[in-house]
Design a protein around this nucleic acid. Structure first.
Lengths: 133, 133
DNA sequence: TCCAAATCTACACTACACGTCAGGTTTAGA
DNA sequence: TCTAAACCTGACGTGTAGTGTAGATTTGGA
């Protein structure tokens, strides 16, 4: 075997990131996530960066991006930024995502408030029914 | 024809709400949205309530709810809650959703913080490049 | 009355994001 | 060296959320 310092196999990555190994395979197929190393007979070895990529993918999915859209932007988060060309463009994308996140935070808060008031309403309706029994 | 004051047909509803008429049919099939009236030979007629339901559905979808989950709670927004049966069950659903919303809020906030630090980094890189020009 | 536009039903089909299964290979430790 | 656990590929299956299409019917206006 080759000692690949602090690399992990797909099983560990998948349990750490909370996704199945088939999902990781799938992400690889569509170009979202490559193993750091494919040693010998084909086992995949990942570094911590891969873990962070999975986290970022999950976060972007929650924002409502499709995997295709994620593939289009995720490298922005992991490439050496100083080498990136078109920094202004990247900045614009990041700021658009910030706007989206803020909008979603606002919606979520409203939803949360609605939920709480509905919960209260439900509780008092249930209590009312109990009293008149 | 029957004059149904201020009702609209599926075409108008769909363009107002920004969904296809096929989607509206689909929502009807799964019990999410019923026409106010089915006059004569089967044309569907909708009132403004239907429009608001579609908006609410879109909002809840954005929060990551499935159509099934939406079906389970949407009446709370439009029906007289006192008539709802299975209040305890509904309450449990609402509380689960609150927990979900809170988790999502936390994650989104983290994501937002990351975004901002990335944005700052980009900005200073851009400024740096300008200085050394 | 005639006709184009809108709508109807029903079935089939698609896209996305995985999951399942089968059969084979590799690895690491006893 | 042996073996169980981990991993591999490829093909096929699944759930969700719709979309497409065909052929028939209805509607409202000229």
């Amino acid at each position: 075997m080759v000692v690949l310092s602090s690399l992990m196999q797909i099983g560990e990555l998948s349990s750490r990131a909370g996704v199945s190994h088939r999902t990781i395979h799938y992400y690889e197929r569509i170009g979202l996530l490559k193993p750091a190393e494919r040693e010998g007979a084909g086992y995949r070895y990942y570094d911590d960066n891969a873990f962070q990529r999975l986290e970022k993918i999950a976060a972007l999915k929650k924002l409502g991006l499709s995997l295709d859209e994620i593939a289009a932007v995720i490298d922005l988060y992991f490439e050496d930024a100083s080498g990136i060309k078109g920094k202004e463009k990247v900045l614009a994308i990041l700021e658009a995502q910030l706007a989206k996140a803020d909008a979603q935070l606002a919606e979520l808060s409203t939803f949360r408030r609605d939920l709480i008031s509905n919960i209260e309403r439900m509780k008092s309706l249930i209590d009312g029914a109990r009293e008149t029994r």
